[in-house]
Structure formats: structure tokens, C-alpha cells
Amino acid sequence: MAEPSSFEARLTQAAEISTRLKKAIGTVLVGQAVVVDQVLWGIIAGGHVLLEGAPGLGKTLLVRTLASCLDLQFSRIQFTPDLMPSDVIGTNMLAMEQAGGARSFTLHKGPIFGQVILADEINRATPKTQSALLEAMQEHAVTIAGKRHVLDEPFFVLATENPIEMEGTYPLPEAQLDRFLLKVMVPNPTEDELTEILQRTTGHEMKPPEKVLAREEVLELRSLCRDVAVAEPVMRFAARFVGASEPGRKESPELIRKALRYGAGVRGAQSLILCAKAVAMLEGRAHVSFSDVQNVAMPALRHRLIRSFEGEADGITTDQVVAELVKTVPTRPEAVEAAVKKG
């Protein structure tokens, strides 16, 4: 990637790269444009993404295709109930030197030592194994036998989970979920999309997509994303948005007070701003708008909200709660909002 001469040129280039990447993914994956966009936000913002959807919707295919498009080291971990933490992070193995017959421990790196990690069906592993990911996801490092090993950047985990077949699964604990920047729901394809899927998958095997993004370019995009400006009122809006998700607050909407036990918290606010920056950057803007924050609210917050018993009993989903927040939390001060509407 050529060094852009100015910030604006870099922004334009970032937008072009994003278009290219989406196009490359589109050669393999049919539809799911929103899912691709959201995954892209996660990668650019430097976070991990949890993909949830029924089997066969292309979750794994998306991650594999993405890894193919990025010139990064790809690892796949198929989570099963008998998967051990060491299977994820690796372990020290006793090895015998052939010459002298001396024995020593050598590090056998687990699949976590990749750059794009596909944690497939993450909810099938035991919490113990799931927790093995915690340090890696948060610190971008693992500790094996007391020795800390820093993982190569860029590092991101793309986990998938299946909302059906819940028997024998271990729902991710809140602390684990919180590590994911975004939770992306993979919808069922439309009739047109399904028709095209059938055309592509029932013929000859297709060629893998070409690599469109090098490691440096990914790092550059992440850096550029951090440079995007956010005005104080927009930050305040994000804070107000997350604050309104706290059921204990008087100013929170009635639905939130009724349906939630815990709100989004600090990580939620951070993910809102980071993802909004990514959105702004991919649209070629050097600043974040209120609508950027509102657009990313759903994938950024839906997995951070913990429903109350009443909410669960009434079947209120966290998506409904976020939609309510988008509807009710004002962007501008009341007087300004009124003037904008009257004008």
C-alpha cells in the first residue's frame, strides 16, 4: 500500500480497500452484506467478533474467506466439550534430543498463535476452555508454563455460536462475552441469495479469493481509525446512550428498567465509539456523527445487556432494548433539538 500523502487521501484509500475486500468476499459468500460490514468494523476497530446464527448460514465460510483475503495467518479451533485449554493455547512438550539423549521441554504452540482465529461453535467447549481465550483476547498474549508469549498483530478472534441445539452447550459467561467488540447476528438468506448459493455450491469447486489486504495495511487501517475525530457532544451522546441502558437510573426508558438487570458498561461505550470511528472512516469521513453511534449500537451492545427475569419472561430481546434506546435517547440538547425540528 502506497503511503498516502495526506489524511484525506488515506481515508479515500481506506474506503477503496474496504470496497475491494467486500468485493473479494462477495465472490465466495453470497449476500450477508451487513454481516460483512460489521465484521469489517470489528477488524478495523481492533476487536473480536462473535457471529451467531443457525447452522449453514455461512459463518465459518465468511471467516475462512476473510482469512483468505487477508494476508494473515489463519487458525481454526473447533470447540468441542472435550477440548482442553492446552488444545487452544498450546503446551510444553517433553522432547528428547537425538544426539545426546537429553530431554527438554519445547513449546508446542496452540492454534491461538495465529492472526485470524476462527473459534467455531465456541459455546460447545467447557467454560474452562472458553476462559483460555480470555487472556489472549484481552491482552493479545498467552501465558504457558509461567511464560508470557505475545501474539502477533494484528490478532483477532472470530467466534461463531449456534443458537439452536443448546443441549450440551455452555453459554459464554458475561465476562467472556464482554471481550467481544461486536456480536453479529447472521440472518437467513433471501430467496435470491439462496438461489445464488445453490448455483455456486452445487457446481465445480470455486477458486479461493485472492489476497487483497496485507498485514501492514490492516495495521494502517487500525491506526487511521484511531485518528478519526470525535466531538465532545458525540462522546457525551455515547455515554448518555450507555448510561440509559442502566436499569437503576431514573432517566432510563421504562422498557430498560423493566427488562434489564445490567446495562452495557464502560466496554460498551468504548466499543460504540471505536466502531463508530470505523464506520466514519469507511465512509471517508474524518469525524464521527451521532448516526454512526446509533448505527453500531445494535452489534456493539446487544451481547452486553443482561436481561432481568421479567425481561426474559416477557420475551424481550436485547435487540428490542437497543432499538428502544436508539429511539429514546436524544442526540442533541433539548432546546437545540427543538430548534432543529421547528426550523
Binding site: A229, A231, E232, R285, A335, E337, V340
Partner: peptide, 26 residues
């Protein structure tokens, strides 16, 4: 109104995605 309020008003009226607000802050 503060400068920020004016900027927010102008952004709202001009549909400029808070560029004026950001510029005022910067």
C-alpha cells in the same frame, strides 16, 4: 446558546454529520 449548541443546530439543519460540531471542538 454556546458555540457547541450553535454548531449542533447548524449540523442538524445542514445534515452535515456533526462536522461543524467536530470542527468547533477542534
Amino acid at each position: 446558546w454556546t458555540d457547541m449548541d450553535v454548531a449542533l443546530y447548524l449540523d442538524g439543519r445542514l445534515d452535515t454529520d456533526e462536522v461543524i460540531t467536530t470542527a468547533v471542538q477542534m
